[in-house]
């Protein structure tokens, strides 16, 4: 295969990955890793480098819209970024000592977990009485809904912070945004309304990914020949996805895609156990 053919196929594949990531809510990075490793036979280390770029691009691209609408809780995001960035750097450091097959197996497990998370029941309720810690850190805020601004408070700041550190480590180790874990920390532990937790998680992914991306860049995981089709394709796909999401509610599509993702995840794990990475 020539570079031209490869670049075009990868561009189209990345576009579909971005579209799929956006429609399922899994993010751009997670679909890029199986695409590169299973379809193109690329070494998982190059795939991780490219996936990090995809995560930064889609996170920053879509975060800009949500920040503008005032849904994102910027203080909460900044506070939790202490946890995710420290975690991401730790993750990137232990990645060197982790066999690639182990990384593939872990990736498959996280992918299944993420798919399950996108299908679960979402927290729509607003907590009116938060913890003193949340008050002290000025984490309580408001967000716009159809009925006007709604004030919310939150609790379990310590638990949320701890889960965020784990999310950071996984993000740094596997090169993905690990949005599902971030949402879990905010939804389940801190009791934040779903809309705020998803957009704030998305807002944080860029910074978390950047913290480990610089380590991977210096380690030589980021190949220019892979970087440009992935960056352009995933961004384009995510953009189309966000337009489609405004027009329809893809609940049925989401179930089908998530089922497909689970098959991909099993394939990753199987290959990992067979030492094919």
């Amino acid at each position: 295969m020539t570079i031209l053919t490869f670049s075009i196929i990868l561009l189209v594949g990345s576009y579909l990955a971005g579209l799929l990531g956006s429609l399922t809510g899994l993010g751009g990075g997670v679909v890029v890793i199986p695409l590169l490793t299973l379809v193109f036979g690329v070494d998982i280390r190059y795939a991780i480098g490219a996936a990090l770029l995809a995560s930064i691009a889609t996170s920053s691209g879509s975060a800009s819209a949500y920040v503008k609408e005032g849904i994102t809780n910027i203080r909460l995001g900044m506070f939790l970024e202490i946890a995710t960035t420290i975690g991401a750097v730790i993750g990137a450091l232990i990645a060197v000592y982790t066999p690639t097959n182990t990384i593939a197996i872990m990736f498959g497990a996280v992918l299944i977990f993420s798919a399950a998370m996108t299908l679960r029941k979402k927290n729509q309720e607003v907590l009116t009485q938060g913890s003193p810690m949340a008050e002290k850190l000025k984490l309580n805020s408001t967000y716009p809904t159809k009925q006007g601004e709604v004030a919310y408070q939150l609790k379990n700041v310590g638990a949320g912070f701890s889960i965020m550190t784990v999310a950071g480590v996984i993000s740094g180790l596997l090169g993905i945004g690990s949005g599902a874990l971030k949402v879990l920390a905010m939804d389940t532990a801190m009791r934040i309304p779903f809309k705020v937790s998803t957009t704030t998680s998305n807002f944080m992914i860029g910074v978390t990914a950047a913290a480990s991306a610089v380590v991977y860049l210096q380690r030589g995981y980021m190949d220019p020949g892979l970087a440009f089709p992935v960056m352009l394709g995933v961004l384009g796909g995510a953009f189309t996805g966000s337009k489609l999401l405004m027009k329809m509610n893809p609940q049925v599509l989401r179930v089908i895609f998530c089922a497909a993702i689970v098959f991909v995840a099993i394939e990753m794990m199987y290959n990992g156990f067979q030492h094919k990475f």
């Binding site: 770029l53 930064i56 920053s60 910074v207 990914a209 991306a213 980021m222 970087a227 440009f228």
Partner: peptide
């Protein structure tokens, strides 16, 4: 291309 990669990584850092 790699400069584009660097700019992409720099974006969230600049945001901070």
């Amino acid at each position: 291309i790699q400069l584009g990669v660097l700019l992409l990584i720099a974006t969230p850092v600049l945001r901070i």
